[in-house]
Amino acid sequence: MAETQNLFSNLQHSRDAVCRADGLACARGAITVFEGVSFSLAAGQALCLRGANGSGKSSLLRQLAGLLPAAAGTLTHPDPAYGTHYLGHADGLKAALTIAETLAFDAALAGYRADNDAYADIAARLGLAGCDWQFVGDLSAGQKRRLTLARLIMDPRPLWLLDEPMTALDAAGRALVTDLAEAHLENGGMIIAASHETLDFADEEVLLEPRR
C-alpha cells in the first residue's frame, strides 16, 4: 500500500512536455481520412477531438501513440514507450484473469510489484468489488472500462490518449474519469480524448472535418 501510494500521488510531470501536430494527414489504403490537422498542447492542457463517425478520431489517436504512421505532416510527442497511455476501443483485458491478476499485470508493465492490499485499494477506488476472486470475464462493460482506468493510476505517464472515455460508464464512472483527468492535468499531464460528449476537463477542441 505504502509503495503504491508513493508511486502514484503527487507525481509532477515535466512542464516542458509538449504534444504538437503540424499539418498531420492520415491515409487508410488509397483513402485520405483527414489532412492538414494542426494543434499544440502544453503541460496541463487537455484537448477534445470531435468529428463525425469515420472522420479519423481514433486514427489520430493511434498516430499519436505511434501505432499508425502519419501520411504527411509532423508530430511532436513524448516517447510512446515511456510517456503515453492509449486507451482504445479494444480494452486489452483477459476474461480468464481475476481483477487482482489484471492489476498485477498492469503493475508489472509499469515495472514494479505491489501487494494484494494495494490492488484491492485500487479496485475499491475504481468502484470494483471482489478484487481477489472476480473474473474479468464476468464484469459488465462499464466495470471493464473502470478496470482499464487502473493503468492510468498505476503507471504515471504524461500523455493520455483516450478513445471515447465515457462509453458504457454510469454517472459515478464519468465523475471518476473527470476526477482522474483533472488530477492528471494539475500534475502537469496532457490529455487528448476523442468523444462525442462534452468533456468537463477539456479546454480546447479540434474538429476533424469530413472529407469529400
Binding site: G66, T84, G88, A90, L109
Partner: peptide, 10 residues
C-alpha cells in the same frame, strides 16, 4: 483484444 497495442507501448 488490444493487448498487442498495449505491449507496443512498454
Amino acid at each position: 483484444d488490444g493487448t498487442l497495442d498495449r505491449l507496443l507501448l512498454v
